[in-house]
């Protein structure tokens, strides 16, 4: 439509409308679209509603906070993984890196006898270093993210075993507050989750690195030719993922009051599931922190609800699998429509 002799001809003023004169129908259509655009949120609300009516003890403050605590570690890991996925990559190492960071926390604070806040800082640095190494392998070693982080999945887990000599490290009492509650009701893990979520949203929406993630995931060559330093940004991206994994590892270890080298095994897959359920595309360029949070909450609510309903752990796995497939299936159908 180069030289348009009739401007406005091609552009229907009301996108999406089927030019129906019936206002009631339009309201229905608009509502439908809002629901479709927020499929994951709707699914979460439906899930909460159903469980509230079905079981007497789901919709209680105690249980909901419990769900929050259960979601926290997955959500924090998933916020980090969102960075990788939005930029068109993946990070499989977050579970191992979380365990490694937790073990390092134990080692610094007990074996080395360091003050707690120094230990926490060094633990975060340990995870960040793993992420940085991932980033170096990916951006300068030109390894595919899948391979680089698969290697780290093994290596970080091994290092956790080496440092802890294969057995759990009991954390000092001064650390247990991270796993507990403030004012007798507000769990610290939930606060950390919210803070990390806001941080992830800020990074994605408002920082140069965050916008670069969308550009690199959308079209890496175009991003490069637009002056974005793709390699340096990839370094930043995977380093951030490592930092988020470390925070998750610290929360997890504090909750358990001990750092276990086998902790968070398989959590990387839960994290990826949360990101994908939240609407991100594995092809890159699409994804939101809020979506990831909803994805993590859906997983936690499901597990919690199935427990309350006395569904066996085995069947729970089946249900989770079905939910992941359904979420992506619905999303694909919506995009095609």
């Amino acid at each position: 439509m180069a030289i348009d002799t009739q401007p406005g001809h091609r552009l229907d003023k009301r996108p999406g409308g089927k030019r129906g004169p019936n206002p009631a129908r339009r309201v229905v259509e608009d509502t439908g679209r809002v629901l479709q655009d927020n499929g994951a949120l709707v699914a979460l609300l439906v899930l909460v509603l159903v469980l509230s009516f079905w079981t007497s003890n789901f919709f209680t403050a105690t249980n909901l906070l419990n769900v929050g605590v259960q979601a926290a570690v997955t959500a924090i890991l998933a916020f980090g993984v969102t960075f990788a996925i939005v930029s068109g990559g993946i990070d499989l190492s977050v579970g191992s890196v979380a365990a490694f960071s937790g073990v390092m926390l134990g080692w610094f604070t007990t074996t080395q006898g360091m003050p707690v806040f120094v230990g926490v800082l060094l633990a975060i640095l340990s995870g960040t270093a793993c992420g940085l190494l991932n980033g170096i392998l990916i951006s300068y070693g030109k390894l595919p993210p899948f391979i680089a982080t698969l290697a780290m999945l093994s290596a970080a887990r091994g290092l956790a075993q080496v440092v802890s000599e294969g057995s759990p490290v009991v954390l000092p009492d001064s650390l247990s507050w991270i796993g507990k509650t403030i004012g007798e009701w507000l769990p610290v893990p939930v606060i950390v989750m919210i803070v990390m979520g806001l941080l992830a949203a800020l990074v994605l929406n408002r920082t140069y690195s965050g916008r670069s993630m969308y550009a690199i995931g959308g079209n890496e060559e175009a991003a490069h030719l637009s002056g974005i330093r793709v390699r340096r940004q990839k370094l930043v991206i995977y380093t951030l993922v490592g930092a988020f994994a470390a925070v998750a590892g610290i929360v997890l270890a504090s909750r358990l009051a001990s750092a276990q080298p086998t902790a968070a095994e398989g959590y990387e897959l839960d994290a990826i599931a949360a990101v994908v359920i939240g609407g991100a595309s594995l092809a890159g360029g699409v994804g939101k922190a809020s979506g990831t949070l909803i994805g993590a909450l859906i997983l936690a609510v499901l597990r919690n609800g199935l427990n309350l309903l006395d569904v066996s752990a085995f069947w729970q796995q089946v249900v989770i699998g079905v939910v992941i497939a359904l979420a992506v299936l619905l999303d694909t159908l919506r995009r095609r429509a």
Partner: peptide, 9 residues
């Protein structure tokens, strides 16, 4: 499309 644009942005 391949080098100049982020097609889905």
């Amino acid at each position: 499309k391949g080098q100049g644009l982020l097609p889905d942005a």
